[in-house]
Amino acid sequence: MSNFFVSSIGKKFVLSLTGLFLILFLVVHLSVNVLIVFDSTGKLFNQAAHFMDTNPLIGIIEPVLAIGLVLHLVLATIITAQNQLLRDVNYTGNKRYQKSNTRENSSWASRNMYVLGTVILVFLVIHMINFFWKIKVTGDPLLNEATGLEPGVKNAYALVTGLFVQWKWSVLIYVIGAIALGLHLYHGVWSAFQSLGWSNRKWRSILSIIGIIVSLIFAGGFAFIPVFVLIQDMVC
């Protein structure tokens, strides 16, 4: 059994499980974020953000999430590095034929999961500096604006909308991040089930469709919110 996690399939077992686990986080995150769209006073969102900030259960899940993310990153790096290493002999033919894996036989996303993952990671760091860090550690004047809720509730809504309105180009970063996430999920969702052995001829097409839906929901949802905030500001 000790060999399990060293074997190629064992590593992907963990990669897949952590990947699916991280989707749970996306579900919670997007559900909270849509409140920005539905309530332009920001009350609902602030309440939800306050809950996420202070609820002890979330406090327990946060480090688990961080561990999941780190495991996902480390395994992806090991698997990708090993695979690159083992493909040390490649095709030399005419430029057009240098790659064995081409668009004729596989999707771009499936061939570039590590690149997409890196884009998402870079985005995540920027995103955490923008919000998580300010809310949890440094604070920000916008957070102290009145929320209309009980005292002590930070005005996360003002912080979020403030960023997109003040630095309009930041919306672009968020849209790029969302697209990278969508492409990652487009291949990642069905691929995770496949690696866990949870697929067959029939389920493969169902899982691919689920993957596409999941990818559209998260890419669309996360990209829509900053765009919406920007438009709302320009119209009102």
Partner: peptide
């Protein structure tokens, strides 16, 4: 041999 990343090129 490397590990499978489910690109599906082999099947095609």
């Amino acid at each position: 041999f490397g590990s499978c990343t489910n690109t599906g090129a082999c099947e095609v």
